[in-house]
Design a protein around this nucleic acid. Structure first.
Length: 306
DNA sequence: AACTACTGCAACCGCCGATTG
DNA sequence: TCAATCGGCGGTTGCAGTAGT
Protein backbone atom coordinates (compact mmCIF):
# COMPACT_ATOMS: atom_id res chain seq x y z
CA UNK A 1 0.00 0.00 0.00
CA UNK A 2 1.59 3.21 -1.11
CA UNK A 3 1.35 6.32 0.90
CA UNK A 4 -0.31 9.30 -0.70
CA UNK A 5 1.76 12.46 -1.06
CA UNK A 6 2.08 14.44 2.14
CA UNK A 7 0.32 17.30 0.46
CA UNK A 8 -1.66 17.70 -2.69
CA UNK A 9 0.38 18.95 -5.58
CA UNK A 10 -1.92 21.81 -6.49
CA UNK A 11 -1.35 24.98 -4.55
CA UNK A 12 1.88 23.84 -3.02
CA UNK A 13 4.86 25.97 -3.83
CA UNK A 14 8.10 24.29 -4.81
CA UNK A 15 11.60 25.42 -5.54
CA UNK A 16 13.95 27.71 -3.69
CA UNK A 17 12.79 29.40 -0.52
CA UNK A 18 12.49 33.16 -0.38
CA UNK A 19 13.68 35.21 2.61
CA UNK A 20 10.06 36.03 3.42
CA UNK A 21 9.24 32.36 3.67
CA UNK A 22 12.31 31.75 5.79
CA UNK A 23 11.31 34.51 8.15
CA UNK A 24 7.80 33.15 8.44
CA UNK A 25 9.12 29.72 9.21
CA UNK A 26 11.72 30.87 11.70
CA UNK A 27 9.23 33.13 13.41
CA UNK A 28 6.81 30.27 13.79
CA UNK A 29 9.44 27.92 15.15
CA UNK A 30 10.67 30.62 17.48
CA UNK A 31 7.22 30.70 18.96
CA UNK A 32 6.21 27.06 18.87
CA UNK A 33 9.47 25.20 18.57
CA UNK A 34 10.36 22.64 15.92
CA UNK A 35 7.95 19.77 15.49
CA UNK A 36 4.34 19.34 14.48
CA UNK A 37 5.40 20.11 10.95
CA UNK A 38 1.97 19.28 9.66
CA UNK A 39 0.66 22.40 11.34
CA UNK A 40 3.37 24.70 10.09
CA UNK A 41 1.96 25.51 6.64
CA UNK A 42 -1.49 26.03 8.09
CA UNK A 43 -0.39 28.37 10.84
CA UNK A 44 2.21 30.29 8.91
CA UNK A 45 0.31 30.61 5.69
CA UNK A 46 3.26 29.15 3.85
CA UNK A 47 2.31 27.46 0.62
CA UNK A 48 4.78 24.71 1.33
CA UNK A 49 4.28 21.15 2.36
CA UNK A 50 5.24 20.12 5.85
CA UNK A 51 8.14 18.10 4.63
CA UNK A 52 9.56 21.03 2.81
CA UNK A 53 9.29 23.15 5.96
CA UNK A 54 11.02 20.55 8.07
CA UNK A 55 13.76 20.12 5.51
CA UNK A 56 14.32 23.82 5.21
CA UNK A 57 14.62 24.12 8.96
CA UNK A 58 16.87 21.15 9.57
CA UNK A 59 19.13 21.70 6.62
CA UNK A 60 19.42 25.42 6.54
CA UNK A 61 17.72 27.52 9.18
CA UNK A 62 18.40 25.53 12.31
CA UNK A 63 20.77 27.36 14.65
CA UNK A 64 24.27 26.06 15.02
CA UNK A 65 24.70 24.79 11.52
CA UNK A 66 28.22 25.15 10.34
CA UNK A 67 28.57 26.06 6.72
CA UNK A 68 31.51 26.39 4.44
CA UNK A 69 34.44 24.15 3.84
CA UNK A 70 34.86 20.92 5.69
CA UNK A 71 37.98 20.70 7.80
CA UNK A 72 40.48 17.91 7.39
CA UNK A 73 39.31 16.53 10.68
CA UNK A 74 35.68 16.48 9.58
CA UNK A 75 36.68 14.94 6.30
CA UNK A 76 38.60 12.23 8.09
CA UNK A 77 35.70 11.47 10.34
CA UNK A 78 33.28 11.27 7.43
CA UNK A 79 35.53 8.93 5.53
CA UNK A 80 35.96 6.64 8.48
CA UNK A 81 32.35 6.71 9.53
CA UNK A 82 31.13 6.16 5.99
CA UNK A 83 33.35 3.14 5.69
CA UNK A 84 32.06 1.84 8.98
CA UNK A 85 28.40 2.76 8.84
CA UNK A 86 27.75 2.91 5.13
CA UNK A 87 25.52 5.60 3.69
CA UNK A 88 23.74 6.21 6.95
CA UNK A 89 24.13 9.92 6.69
CA UNK A 90 21.93 10.75 9.62
CA UNK A 91 24.03 8.50 11.82
CA UNK A 92 27.21 10.03 10.48
CA UNK A 93 25.79 13.50 10.97
CA UNK A 94 25.16 12.70 14.61
CA UNK A 95 28.91 12.57 15.05
CA UNK A 96 29.21 15.99 13.43
CA UNK A 97 26.39 17.88 15.12
CA UNK A 98 27.07 21.14 13.32
CA UNK A 99 26.73 19.51 9.92
CA UNK A 100 23.51 18.32 8.40
CA UNK A 101 23.10 14.90 6.91
CA UNK A 102 22.31 16.56 3.61
CA UNK A 103 25.55 18.50 3.75
CA UNK A 104 27.56 15.42 4.55
CA UNK A 105 25.81 13.46 1.85
CA UNK A 106 26.48 16.18 -0.69
CA UNK A 107 30.07 16.49 0.40
CA UNK A 108 30.55 12.77 0.10
CA UNK A 109 28.97 12.56 -3.31
CA UNK A 110 30.69 15.59 -4.78
CA UNK A 111 34.06 15.58 -3.10
CA UNK A 112 35.05 12.56 -1.12
CA UNK A 113 33.82 9.80 -3.39
CA UNK A 114 35.74 11.31 -6.24
CA UNK A 115 38.76 12.09 -4.15
CA UNK A 116 38.97 8.64 -2.67
CA UNK A 117 38.39 6.98 -6.00
CA UNK A 118 41.32 8.89 -7.38
CA UNK A 119 43.40 7.94 -4.39
CA UNK A 120 42.30 4.37 -4.81
CA UNK A 121 43.41 4.38 -8.40
CA UNK A 122 46.73 6.02 -7.73
CA UNK A 123 47.59 4.23 -4.54
CA UNK A 124 45.58 1.21 -3.60
CA UNK A 125 47.61 0.69 -0.46
CA UNK A 126 46.63 4.06 0.99
CA UNK A 127 44.69 3.69 4.24
CA UNK A 128 42.00 6.08 3.15
CA UNK A 129 41.75 4.61 -0.28
CA UNK A 130 41.41 1.16 1.13
CA UNK A 131 38.25 2.29 2.84
CA UNK A 132 36.44 3.00 -0.35
CA UNK A 133 34.10 0.26 -1.28
CA UNK A 134 35.66 -2.08 1.20
CA UNK A 135 34.37 -1.46 4.65
CA UNK A 136 36.09 -2.82 7.67
CA UNK A 137 35.50 -6.54 8.07
CA UNK A 138 34.26 -5.87 11.55
CA UNK A 139 31.45 -3.76 10.20
CA UNK A 140 28.24 -5.20 8.92
CA UNK A 141 27.57 -2.12 6.86
CA UNK A 142 28.09 -2.00 3.16
CA UNK A 143 29.19 1.39 2.00
CA UNK A 144 27.58 0.96 -1.37
CA UNK A 145 24.26 -0.16 -0.06
CA UNK A 146 22.30 1.66 2.56
CA UNK A 147 21.91 -0.98 5.27
CA UNK A 148 18.89 0.60 6.82
CA UNK A 149 17.01 0.36 3.60
CA UNK A 150 18.51 -2.47 1.62
CA UNK A 151 19.33 -5.13 4.16
CA UNK A 152 16.80 -7.44 5.65
CA UNK A 153 15.41 -6.17 8.89
CA UNK A 154 17.38 -7.51 11.81
CA UNK A 155 15.76 -8.71 14.97
CA UNK A 156 16.01 -6.56 18.06
CA UNK A 157 18.85 -8.63 19.43
CA UNK A 158 20.66 -8.57 16.14
CA UNK A 159 20.09 -4.88 15.88
CA UNK A 160 21.49 -4.25 19.32
CA UNK A 161 24.55 -6.35 18.61
CA UNK A 162 25.01 -4.58 15.34
CA UNK A 163 24.67 -1.21 16.96
CA UNK A 164 27.09 -2.24 19.65
CA UNK A 165 29.51 -3.40 17.02
CA UNK A 166 29.06 -0.23 15.02
CA UNK A 167 29.64 1.98 18.00
CA UNK A 168 32.64 0.02 19.08
CA UNK A 169 34.15 0.10 15.62
CA UNK A 170 33.35 3.75 15.23
CA UNK A 171 35.00 4.53 18.52
CA UNK A 172 38.16 2.77 17.46
CA UNK A 173 38.13 4.47 14.09
CA UNK A 174 37.54 7.82 15.67
CA UNK A 175 40.36 7.38 18.11
CA UNK A 176 42.50 6.93 15.07
CA UNK A 177 40.91 9.70 13.10
CA UNK A 178 41.03 12.33 15.79
CA UNK A 179 44.60 11.90 16.81
CA UNK A 180 46.39 14.20 17.18
CA UNK A 181 43.69 16.32 18.79
CA UNK A 182 42.32 18.89 16.35
CA UNK A 183 43.37 21.92 18.31
CA UNK A 184 43.75 24.13 15.29
CA UNK A 185 40.39 23.40 13.78
CA UNK A 186 38.50 23.57 17.03
CA UNK A 187 39.97 26.87 17.99
CA UNK A 188 39.34 28.47 14.66
CA UNK A 189 35.94 27.07 13.90
CA UNK A 190 33.32 29.49 12.78
CA UNK A 191 29.63 28.94 12.73
CA UNK A 192 26.68 30.53 11.11
CA UNK A 193 23.56 31.01 13.08
CA UNK A 194 20.19 30.77 11.47
CA UNK A 195 20.00 34.52 11.50
CA UNK A 196 23.17 34.67 9.51
CA UNK A 197 21.79 32.20 7.09
CA UNK A 198 18.74 34.34 6.64
CA UNK A 199 20.85 37.44 6.42
CA UNK A 200 22.93 35.87 3.74
CA UNK A 201 19.82 34.90 1.88
CA UNK A 202 18.39 38.35 2.23
CA UNK A 203 21.57 39.81 0.92
CA UNK A 204 21.49 37.64 -2.14
CA UNK A 205 17.83 38.34 -2.54
CA UNK A 206 18.33 42.05 -2.27
CA UNK A 207 20.90 41.99 -5.03
CA UNK A 208 18.04 41.28 -7.36
CA UNK A 209 15.85 44.02 -5.97
CA UNK A 210 16.10 47.78 -6.13
CA UNK A 211 17.79 48.47 -2.85
CA UNK A 212 19.53 51.34 -1.21
CA UNK A 213 22.90 51.27 0.49
CA UNK A 214 21.12 51.98 3.67
CA UNK A 215 19.16 48.81 3.57
CA UNK A 216 22.25 46.86 2.72
CA UNK A 217 23.99 48.33 5.70
CA UNK A 218 21.23 47.19 7.93
CA UNK A 219 22.19 43.63 7.41
CA UNK A 220 23.20 42.02 10.63
CA UNK A 221 26.44 40.72 9.29
CA UNK A 222 28.78 42.27 6.81
CA UNK A 223 30.89 39.36 5.75
CA UNK A 224 29.24 38.56 2.46
CA UNK A 225 28.20 35.20 1.22
CA UNK A 226 30.46 33.22 3.41
CA UNK A 227 30.02 35.53 6.28
CA UNK A 228 30.01 33.70 9.51
CA UNK A 229 30.24 34.86 13.02
CA UNK A 230 32.38 33.48 15.72
CA UNK A 231 29.86 31.54 17.68
CA UNK A 232 30.36 28.71 20.04
CA UNK A 233 28.44 26.57 17.65
CA UNK A 234 29.04 23.25 19.24
CA UNK A 235 28.30 24.60 22.65
CA UNK A 236 25.24 26.07 21.06
CA UNK A 237 24.23 22.63 20.01
CA UNK A 238 24.85 21.39 23.47
CA UNK A 239 22.75 24.18 24.88
CA UNK A 240 19.97 23.96 22.39
CA UNK A 241 19.88 20.29 21.86
CA UNK A 242 19.32 20.85 18.17
CA UNK A 243 21.15 18.40 16.07
CA UNK A 244 21.65 15.94 18.82
CA UNK A 245 18.01 15.10 19.01
CA UNK A 246 17.80 15.23 22.73
CA UNK A 247 18.29 17.59 25.60
CA UNK A 248 16.34 20.32 23.96
CA UNK A 249 13.59 20.34 26.49
CA UNK A 250 15.39 22.40 29.03
CA UNK A 251 16.82 24.87 26.63
CA UNK A 252 15.42 27.55 24.45
CA UNK A 253 16.57 30.08 21.99
CA UNK A 254 15.30 33.45 21.10
CA UNK A 255 15.51 34.75 17.60
CA UNK A 256 14.29 38.23 17.04
CA UNK A 257 13.32 39.57 13.70
CA UNK A 258 12.35 43.08 12.91
CA UNK A 259 11.81 45.40 10.01
CA UNK A 260 10.35 45.10 6.57
CA UNK A 261 11.63 42.37 4.30
CA UNK A 262 13.96 44.73 2.56
CA UNK A 263 15.45 46.03 5.76
CA UNK A 264 14.97 43.11 8.01
CA UNK A 265 17.46 42.64 10.71
CA UNK A 266 17.78 39.42 12.46
CA UNK A 267 19.50 38.79 15.69
CA UNK A 268 19.85 35.70 17.70
CA UNK A 269 20.26 35.41 21.35
CA UNK A 270 20.51 32.17 23.08
CA UNK A 271 19.77 31.47 26.63
CA UNK A 272 20.51 28.49 28.69
CA UNK A 273 17.81 27.60 31.07
CA UNK A 274 17.80 25.34 34.02
CA UNK A 275 19.25 22.00 33.24
CA UNK A 276 21.37 23.19 30.39
CA UNK A 277 25.01 22.44 30.68
CA UNK A 278 27.10 25.49 31.25
CA UNK A 279 29.94 25.24 28.85
CA UNK A 280 32.52 27.76 29.85
CA UNK A 281 34.90 26.85 27.10
CA UNK A 282 32.76 26.01 24.11
CA UNK A 283 35.50 25.04 21.74
CA UNK A 284 37.04 22.80 24.31
CA UNK A 285 33.71 21.31 25.30
CA UNK A 286 32.43 20.91 21.78
CA UNK A 287 33.59 17.81 20.03
CA UNK A 288 35.64 16.63 22.91
CA UNK A 289 32.42 15.74 24.69
CA UNK A 290 31.40 13.59 21.79
CA UNK A 291 34.82 12.11 21.52
CA UNK A 292 34.90 11.50 25.23
CA UNK A 293 31.60 9.70 25.03
CA UNK A 294 32.77 7.64 22.12
CA UNK A 295 36.10 6.86 23.65
CA UNK A 296 35.11 6.39 27.22
CA UNK A 297 34.62 2.74 27.94
CA UNK A 298 32.37 3.26 30.94
CA UNK A 299 30.02 5.55 29.14
CA UNK A 300 30.06 3.25 26.19
CA UNK A 301 29.07 0.24 28.23
CA UNK A 302 26.33 2.17 29.96
CA UNK A 303 25.07 3.49 26.67
CA UNK A 304 24.78 0.13 25.03
CA UNK A 305 23.21 -1.40 28.03
CA UNK A 306 25.78 -3.89 29.31
C1' DA B 1 32.46 37.59 -25.84
C1' DA B 2 29.92 33.47 -26.47
C1' DC B 3 29.27 28.92 -25.80
C1' DT B 4 29.79 24.49 -23.44
C1' DA B 5 31.01 21.46 -19.71
C1' DC B 6 31.50 20.87 -15.06
C1' DT B 7 30.60 21.49 -10.11
C1' DG B 8 28.21 22.21 -5.84
C1' DC B 9 24.24 22.41 -3.35
C1' DA B 10 19.33 23.17 -2.20
C1' DA B 11 15.30 20.88 -2.67
C1' DC B 12 12.27 17.14 -4.09
C1' DC B 13 10.77 12.25 -4.25
C1' DG B 14 9.65 7.93 -2.57
C1' DC B 15 10.09 4.67 0.94
C1' DC B 16 10.17 3.17 5.77
C1' DG B 17 9.19 2.82 10.75
C1' DA B 18 6.67 4.84 14.50
C1' DT B 19 2.62 6.73 16.22
C1' DT B 20 -2.20 7.44 16.71
C1' DG B 21 -7.12 6.80 16.72
C1' DT C 1 -5.67 -5.10 15.11
C1' DC C 2 -5.31 -2.19 11.40
C1' DA C 3 -5.38 1.68 8.47
C1' DA C 4 -4.17 6.49 8.22
C1' DT C 5 -0.89 9.77 9.19
C1' DC C 6 3.45 11.77 10.40
C1' DG C 7 8.36 12.43 10.78
C1' DG C 8 12.66 10.90 9.16
C1' DC C 9 15.96 9.07 5.92
C1' DG C 10 18.66 8.27 1.66
C1' DG C 11 18.75 8.75 -3.34
C1' DT C 12 18.26 11.74 -6.96
C1' DT C 13 17.41 15.86 -9.64
C1' DG C 14 17.48 20.67 -11.23
C1' DC C 15 19.63 24.81 -11.45
C1' DA C 16 22.86 28.57 -10.62
C1' DG C 17 27.51 29.67 -10.66
C1' DT C 18 32.16 28.80 -12.39
C1' DA C 19 35.81 27.12 -15.33
C1' DG C 20 37.41 25.94 -19.68
C1' DT C 21 37.58 26.44 -24.70
Amino acid sequence: MGRPPCCDKAGVKKGPWTPEEDILLVSYIQEHGPGNWRAVPTHTGLLRCSKSCRLRWTNYLRPGIKRGNFTDHEEKMIIHLQALLGNRWAAIASYLPERTDNDIKNYWNTHLKKKLTMMNNSDSSSPSASLVGSPSPSSSADSSISPSKKSTKPSRGQWERRLQSDIHTARRALSHAISPPPTASSSSSTYASSADNIARLLKGWMKNKPTSNESAESMPTSGGVDSVVELPGRALNALLGFGSGDGASNCSYDLSLSGSPATTTATTSFKAEEGCEDVSDPDEASLSLLEKWLLDEGTFLTAVGN
